[in-house]
Amino acid sequence: MIRARSTNPYASPPTTDAAMDAITEKLTRIFQDVFDLDAITLRDDMAAADVEEWDSLNHVKLVVAIESGFGVKFSTREITGWKNVGDMKRTLQSKLKS
């Protein structure tokens, strides 16, 4: 019932691709929510310039929503370092691991 490798990935901290997919899934919902879009497909190389709704205001809302949705807090360096969705996901993954 769970897409998994040989062992249950959730027994240990999520470090697998499956965990990354799960982050993408939740992130996608937050993007849809903030951008008020019915559907959006997140790609790792997707950047603000690629999405019409992704302006500076929505970027602020996005960060606030991700922080509250995942229960994490980003540092200024982390946020200003993001170039695309992939960067956001990697930061998130490392936060959720710790």
Partner: peptide
């Protein structure tokens, strides 16, 4: 059916991981 998954879900009820876990279901 994986009883341990349900146990895991129960345990993560109040954490943001709940939804992440659910999204992995076939």
């Amino acid at each position: 059916p994986d009883a341990s998954l349900e146990a895991l879900l129960e345990a993560s009820l109040t954490s943001p991981v709940y939804e992440v876990l659910l999204s992995r279901v076939e």
